[in-house]
Simulated scan of single mutants.
Amino acid sequence: MTARDAIVLNSHGVGQYAYCDHMPSWGETLSVSKWHIAEDGGKGSNVTVALGRLGLDVAYVGKVGDDAWGDLGEKWMSEAGADTTFLYRDPSVSTGTGLVLLGPDGSNAIIDGDSSSSALTVDEVTAAIEGMRGSKYFITGFEVPEGIALEGARRAHHLGMKTVLNPSPLPAGSLPPLGFIDYLFVNEVEAAALAGMAKSNLESLARGVLQATSARNVIVTLGSDGSCALTEEGEFLKVDPVKVENVVNTAGAGDGFMAATVANLVWGKTLREAMEWASYYSALAVTIDGTIPAYRSLDEVNAFINGCQSKTCEE
């Protein structure tokens, strides 16, 4: 095996979509419309496809069933140019599915089913990482078991890779010290939970996450309010959102933002520059239905950015 720009260890699943006018309360029977299976992956396949379409040399590590949903994940990632050598197929498990409820304004709530990646073993993950020694970035998250994700990150860090963690969904207990994580990506709800404080002052929120986790850099996505970060040098960054009028679907926007940020870091950009570019990337993504179709090629994203900037200059 050869070294890669990025290795992604997280789950693959297939999303089902339904439209509703509000989120259900406990005990409520909710009527939805347009329930359908879409081109929507898990966090692992989402990030892998996004990186592949941006031109990075990326490899995926995960486990799926020997079923149609697993076939679909392998197809999406392979067509994006990703290496799927370490996409383990196991006939004893079923590839996971999830339900995305979409509101009238494009907001979403996601219900994750059991992940087939729960059947992954430390030995399988270690074999994959060892087989790609010299890779630049290792990206993981908690749609695979927390212990396996963190053990993979520790091993990658030991081998000199930059490590990226999206600890979603957050575990019930506290996280161990994450000094081996170079970039921790969380949304504002996760940040508040980790820091033990409500969102008020963004810098204080980011600092609270950094202190609670010991990660080197913390990036907080803020939805329509943009993003912010606190670096290991103590610099606070605030990045404005890129506004678009035709928001169709926000599912997968956070995965895309993280992938786009990492891509720019691989290209040698600063963290601020990477986050600014990723804001445009996410803005384009939310105008397209389904996560897999929303992750566009580098040429398409650059054309979108140029169009936005030209429009801003004209205004």
Rank of each mutant, 00 (worst) to 15 (best):
R4L: 08
D5R: 07
I7Y: 02
G13P: 08
G15R: 01
Y17R: 08
Y17K: 07
S31H: 06
V32W: 06
E39R: 06
D40R: 14
T48N: 11
G70Q: 02
G73Q: 02
M77H: 04
G81E: 13
G81S: 10
A82N: 12
Y88A: 15
G96A: 14
G98L: 05
I110H: 04
D114N: 10
T121H: 07
V122M: 13
E124G: 13
V125C: 14
R133L: 13
K136M: 15
Y137M: 04
V144P: 03
A153H: 12
R155T: 07
R155N: 08
L159Y: 13
L159P: 01
T163D: 02
V164S: 09
N166D: 11
G173H: 10
S174Y: 15
L175F: 03
G179V: 08
D182P: 02
L184G: 14
F185Q: 01
L194F: 06
G196A: 08
L202M: 06
S204K: 08
A206W: 00
R207L: 10
G208M: 13
L222T: 05
G226E: 01
S227E: 00
A229N: 05
E233T: 09
E245L: 06
V248C: 13
G252V: 12
A253S: 09
G254R: 02
G254W: 00
F257G: 02
F257A: 04
A259Q: 05
A260T: 06
V262A: 05
G268C: 10
G268T: 09
R272T: 04
W277Y: 03
D289C: 05
A303H: 11
F304G: 05
I305A: 07
G307I: 07
K311E: 10
K311H: 11
C313W: 09
E315L: 03
